[in-house]
Design a binder for these strands. Structure first.
Length: 280
DNA sequence: ATCCTATCCTGGCTGC
DNA sequence: TGCAGCCAGGATAGGA
């Protein structure tokens, strides 16, 4: 599933083909992909604009637009579960679940999305879109001490808290499970009962996990995530716990387990991640 | 404040 | 073989 590393990879690989391109036309095949925005508004925002950057905020792809050297809003895309964004030659065959196509001055930008959860829209104001997002785990506004303070300021289980994009922006189910295992923290531990040393460890393991996943262009273990070049990522080969329930822990050998927390499959080792005492 | 559930969706899988 | 039913999951909304 596209989380921070997959979105970062998508932005990086799209950049050379997209930056400098001018948008000529907009073709919407599944209107709900616009998330309530009208097709007219999308067209008004995009047609004639030039793409000047390919970046990421949390799990959103963000493309700066310009008209005559003046900033002119943003193209914002969220891949959600199964979205794929890639540049193709203008006459290439359409992918099987095409939702939006932008005609460019060179080729097309296609948004393909099997499950239709993805979003693709124009935003005049970037802050309005991202107002409720928490800090970037790889950004410089956060360090181990402030992350520890943030954990202590909440009274939630670690797993749902780390998935909460208003608390920390960019983690999803896979990288939360991996980071908790690497930190030796049980997913049901209460955030305000994590000692500072362990909080600092968690912070560093989150960053290390994300950086390692970016270096391998993300994780591809089902038919969904592929980079814009169509290649799978390779971080799935590094998974320590995700999807490994029933198999031995690579650290201690105990059989890994899977439970459901907040309706999310949660994978961990009962020995390496000891259960919290009493209720948290 | 936090938790829980439902919603959106489809393809792939299980079980009969 | 066919088919019904279930599952995965990011974000969000509404209720407890």
């Amino acid at each position: 599933m596209p989380e921070l590393p997959e979105v970062e990879t998508t932005a990086r690989l799209l950049e050379p083909d997209l930056v400098g391109r001018r948008i000529r036309g907009v073709d919407v095949r599944w209107p709900r992909t616009l998330g309530g925005q009208s097709e007219h508004a999308l067209r008004e925002g995009l047609v004639g604009a030039r793409i000047t950057t390919a970046g990421r905020r949390a799990k959103y792809l963000v493309f700066d637009l310009e008209r005559g050297r003046r900033p002119a809003g943003y193209l914002v895309v969220h891949l959600r579960m199964s979205g794929r964004l890639f540049v193709a030659p203008a006459r290439a065959a359409e992918s099987s679940h095409l939702r939006v196509r932008l005609s460019l001055d060179r080729g097309v930008l296609d948004f393909d999305d099997v499950r239709k959860f993805g979003r693709f829209f124009f935003a005049a104001d970037r802050d309005a879109v991202f107002a409720s997002l928490g800090p970037e785990p790889l950004g410089d506004e956060l360090d181990a001490a402030s992350f520890g303070r943030a954990l202590r300021s909440r009274k939630r289980m670690l797993k749902p808290l780390l998935l909460d994009q208003t608390f920390l922006a960019g983690l999803g189910n896979i990288y939360v499970d991996e980071s908790l295992f690497r930190s030796g923290l049980h997913p049901l531990r209460r955030s305000d009962r994590v000692p500072q040393a362990a909080a600092g460890r968690l912070f560093e393991e989150i960053r290390a996990t994300l950086n390692e996943a970016i270096a391998r262009e993300g994780s591809s273990f089902d038919s969904f995530y592929r980079t814009p070049t169509g290649q799978p990522g390779s971080y799935q080969h590094q998974f320590l716990v995700y999807g490994r329930d029933g198999r031995p822990c690579l650290r201690c050998g105990r059989t890994l387990v899977k439970i459901v927390v907040g309706q999310r499959g949660t994978h961990f080792c009962t020995r390496c991640q000891p259960a919290p005492r009493q209720r948290g």
